[in-house]
Design a protein around this nucleic acid. Sequence first.
DNA 1: ATGTGC
Length: 488
Amino acid sequence: MAKLKLRGKDLRNIGYPEGPVISVAITVMEQHYKHYTQEAALALLHQVLEAPASFTEDEQLSKIAGKLIVEEPTEIAINAEAVPYRVYGKEFIDEGAIRQMDYAMRLPVTVAGALMPDAHQGYGLPIGGVLAVKNAVIPYGVGVDIGCRMCLSILDIPHTQLEKQASVFKRELKAGTVFGAGAEWKPRIDDEVLEHPAFSEIGLLKHLHAKAAGQLSTSGSGNHFVEWGLVEITDAQNEFGLATGTYLGLLSHSGSRGLGAQIAGHYTKLAREICQLPREVQHLAWLGLDTEEGQEYWTAMNLAGDYASACHHQIHRRLIKAVGGTLLARVENHHNFAWKETHGGEELVVHRKGATPAGKGALGVIPGSMTAPGFIVRGRGEAASLDSASHGAGRQMSRSKATQSFTRHELTRILADHKVHLIGGGLDEAPGAYKNITEVMAAQTALVDVIGTFLPKIVRMADGVSTTTITLLLDYSTTTLPLLLDYS
DNA sequence: ATGTGC
């Protein structure tokens, strides 16, 4: 019987890639499968090529499989050129955010994007980044706090009561909210969002139901807040049918708490396994919208959005009831989310990571800071911004830099000057850590029209002490914690 | 942003 003779060409013909695998395969086959016909040898080699992972235990074929697994291109290339995109308020935006956006615009799935004037560096997509992609969703294009949103209630209580009855509003704000990582509201609240079928359909969500139930109506930490303030309606043609003038308002900013954070963490890890990208863009790993994983993320993301909304509604319901008010109008909008939208005649997935939806006529709230007004806005539907606007003033200083730059005494002075009462809050959230909201708004006059403003008066935030301090205090005694940390 | 770990 003729001895087996293989040539590189034979292997390339059945799909073998160029490289060392060719000679390794020829050597292995000619030494250990020499009694095989060429046809049988090539058939076997084809099997190894199709599923190298299933031959890793084979003494001889594993040598070929090993080369194939190593050589298999695992990294998805990004484009050399970025898709052009519009930057609003470029003079306010740090280089890091621009660099991240430039990278995002080079993904093969990217179709369009824009950068909002409050942009700053984040993980993967910058905060303030808008990214429209084809048939995929990027977990870190949405962000860790899925469904983070604003909710404003305008009440029928005369605005003068806020000063006259300040102690009542302060008391109820403290009694009706709870802040901090891991914070729970007790006793647990029933809400129909907890009955959502996704909680029983997706394994991860089954596991998270108890956490979600415990944290419903809580506010989290960082830049999250609940505040009483003065609404000034300036547009006589407002959608609420309200006369221009001053109203009492309740404004909250928070997201999907541990539920959303766990969903984000789980699916971005999964995306990074499935979609291996160059180091610079590894956080932008996506899930195909038509894959099981992508569909699961989409369902979970939407659940986290509904949950974040439910949290706001429960907080507002509790506080409005406590002060005996009636709702006149409400404005609510997500600013960390992805939507299926049509742009330029194409259905795309639009990620807004710290960006306010501003399609024509869409209402939203863009907060300022503790001492600067926020804005009630109506979207203008500007195509170049992909129907988006900023989600706030944006940080001009990192949390650590802000903590080093200000003293508690200075913060107290600034708050007093603006007649703002702060419960909790850290130096990392000091007004000076933020960009000038007036300048940021001026950079996006093409994106939104202003209907009115919201001026914070009684603000509650998480206690902004260092993580180390919290750990020490927790170790020391859980029961003394509220007293030690309450700056009010 | 979360609540605990390259």
